[in-house]
């Protein structure tokens, strides 16, 4: 296996089990923003909310588009910043 092939097999998003190869293929097809990759591959939608994969993917986009990473849109961050149990949110304290 070449270095390139080995790298392609690396799991970039552990929540959704997405490999570097899949990321590179979709960037090459023109889906070259973090949010587009998120829509197609669910990277950043798992319980870790992109904490594990975002940096790696942004770096890959920068490399493939040949632009500085500072010019790559980091994509949307959504609340809550940490997963919260439904029963905690549903607790009535101080009314509606």
């Amino acid at each position: 296996m070449t270095e390139e092939e080995k790298e392609r097999n690396v799991i970039v998003c552990r929540c959704e089990e997405i490999t570097m190869g899949e990321i590179r293929d979709w960037i090459a097809r023109g889906y070259d923003t973090f949010d587009e990759l998120k829509h197609i591959l669910r990277v950043g939608m798992g319980p870790c909310q992109g904490r594990g994969c975002r940096e790696i993917i942004l770096r890959e986009i920068a490399k493939m588009k040949n632009v500085p990473i500072t010019q790559v849109d980091p994509g949307t961050f959504r609340p809550p910043s940490k997963p919260v149990k439904l029963e905690l949110l549903a607790k009535k304290e101080g009314g509606e």
């Binding site: 939608m45 949110l89 549903a90």
Partner: peptide, 8 residues
């Protein structure tokens, strides 16, 4: 009840 909300 014990299931967590991850995103809104």
């Amino acid at each position: 009840g014990g299931v967590r909300v991850v995103r809104q």
